[in-house]
Nucleic acid binder design. Structure first.
Lengths: 347, 347
DNA sequence: TTTTCCTACGAAAACGTTGTAATCTTAATA
DNA sequence: TATTAAGATTACAACGTTTTCGTAGGAAAA
């Protein structure tokens, strides 16, 4: 196995010192034109590339961003990553992704692992279990150690760091308003339990939208589920009964899976979408687009979110030492995408 | 900003040498029980963690695997990554992911970037443009430098390295056979042009399945499209006409998007799936699962593929120096998943 | 007492860089 | 001719580890 080319090898080969080689390659004026050319030619010929690890150690910087997310088999996170990737690349940063699988211990482990010199900062979306446990020491510890952290999507208010959020309340409001505009009045919502910030805020938006139209909010039309973005059999059964037991003409869901499951059950119940029941879902997924009928959604723009998160982090990483600490919370707007699961707006 | 705790700081604090601290923490018998306890207690109290970068530099190993893939917004790659992640984690490796966006130059750049000390080896799926250009120097160069490389899915036969592939021919055969078993005889295929290896092999499987049942292969029932995994308007229109113009009772597609598009057009044509026309698709997607009706698929097991790729790579990384070079090509079996788009098998 | 052998620690090198300071030439100036 | 200046190169330390080798001091053996 060939050994990677190093300054030392070049130096030995050309019979100069290591310093000379280093300086020549960095175009230092200290080195004579002759020597510089010779060294650069040699380096180019044998394709010398400085060793990143050594540089990281020396500079105490890795130019690497660590992403900690619950899972990757999820279109939303996938898009966020893409956004982060883009922005990172533009600023010459690398990206390491680790998955927590929604497991608290694994999340802690991953953060510790990456905190030991591998990354300059973190972009984090917390695991379900972490939110549940209400234990964020691993995050605050990282922050205390001087690691900049940006949280997105699944955040915790109390942690002092930059945050990027979807404007969940506004988004939900927009989605439900659309249902109202198309004439629906018996609008249900399928959401998560309140400890999930997202669910809570979206529920709030739902309520506000109804109130703004003078529609009474009925408690029995609000279904709060334990699941967050998967929908297992139990979850599916609950949705089924919910849809069967209530007289509704529309359903708003806080994620795609709930919507798809609802669509399936409505279909089984012989209800036509959108004639009998309209559906609007919060989403950043492919599913909505291709379902028959395709789903109208409140689109989350995960890519933008990723870009923003990366931007905030990079700002922190490159700010001068003495700058005052200051935390931003950025909101990413949502867009309503009309598809086949809602009726046309009446004029 | 607090400085990270290092051996040096501990040594200074406890008034011993750096060596002593290092040894104590690694439970060396050289250090007296007393000192050892004292040092370990201190380290624990202040949460000392060795610096990874320094270790990497020293050991000339990073315990990091680099993944180079065309895109991440694609369920298949997402699953592969998950598989790689798992296996890596089990063997105490980290994972860095970079995206080529199907762009040749970016792929080259990414590989060079990661090759400079950041990773011990690569898992690669080539960009379309790279396959088209037929230029693989960046890969062979990495291999020449002693970087183990494992290719998966979009591979090139000539490159000497481990490879992981889906058994496309067998998979397609199994899918089409299932259609035959459920009584279908007028089976169409929607596939890609032959220059895409995957399409070619799957078409071959289709033909073999028909022949094994003594069903005549009709050229007009084979639709070869230019697209690979997206399906734009033009592509959709072609599928629409194909379905309208031919009298068929089943359609086999080489990817999920073709299947979804077909389902949509069949629906519009008033054909019931599966009563009038059955559908089987090659896939590793979520779409199939949630479509109404859900699609029967030849499942690709991306996760397994990822695990296998990681396993091969780790084997290479940990094999003794003097072992002979030897390359494996592993095939990942496919599985037929029966859902609602096919009829039950008649006995 | 002298030699040998443990025990418990420390010094130093190495991994690959970079930047500062030191050194050595050679030519110009006084 | 002696001094200085400049130009060109090199030595060295540092980043944080681990590990090999060395060594001091004391106890056991001769």
């Amino acid at each position: 196995m060939k050994r990677k080319l190093t300054l030392k090898l070049i130096a030995k080969e050309l019979d100069v010192s290591i310093s000379t080689v280093s300086k020549a390659l960095r175009d230092s004026a200290e080195i004579s034109e002759d020597t510089r050319q010779k060294i650069k030619a040699f380096a180019k010929l044998y394709n010398y590339k400085p060793n990143n690890i050594a540089l990281s150690l020396k500079n105490r910087k890795t130019r690497t961003i660590g992403i900690i997310i619950p899972q990757i088999v999820h279109h939303f996170f996938t898009k966020v990553i893409k956004g982060i990737e883009q922005m990172a690349r533009e600023h010459n940063y690398n990206v390491i992704i680790t998955l927590s699988n929604n497991d608290f211990d694994k999340e802690v482990l991953n953060m510790e692992l990456l905190a030991n010199g591998s990354t300059d900062g973190f972009i984090v979306s917390l695991a379900n279990e972490t939110l549940h446990k209400d234990d964020f020491r691993h995050v605050t510890e990282a922050i205390d150690q001087g690691m900049p952290v940006v949280m997105f999507d699944r955040i915790v208010d109390e942690i002092p760091c930059d945050k990027v959020l979807i404007d969940d309340r506004e988004g939900a409001k927009m989605g439900v308003r659309h249902l109202l505009k198309t004439g629906c009045r018996k609008i249900a919502i399928i959401t998560t339990k309140d400890y999930v910030t997202i669910g809570k805020l979206r529920t709030k938006g739902y309520i506000e939208a109804l109130e703004s139209y003078g529609v009474r909010v009925q408690k029995e039309l609000i279904l709060k589920l334990d699941n967050i973005d998967r929908c297992d059999d139990e979850c599916s059964a609950k949705i089924k009964h919910f849809l069967k037991d209530n007289d509704i003409d529309a359903v708003f869901t806080v994620n795609e899976m709930f919507a798809v499951t609802a669509a399936r059950h409505l279909n089984a119940l012989g209800k036509n979408v959108p004639t009998d029941v309209s559906i609007v879902s919060f989403s950043d997924g492919e599913l909505s687009k291709h379902l028959i009928p395709s789903l109208s959604t409140v689109s989350q723009h995960g890519e933008l979110m990723g870009r923003k998160a990366a931007e905030l982090l990079i700002n922190k990483l490159e700010r001068p030492e003495d700058e005052v600490e200051e935390y931003t919370t950025a909101y990413i707007d949502t867009t309503l995408i009309e598809r086949e699961s809602t009726k046309k707006i009446k004029n």
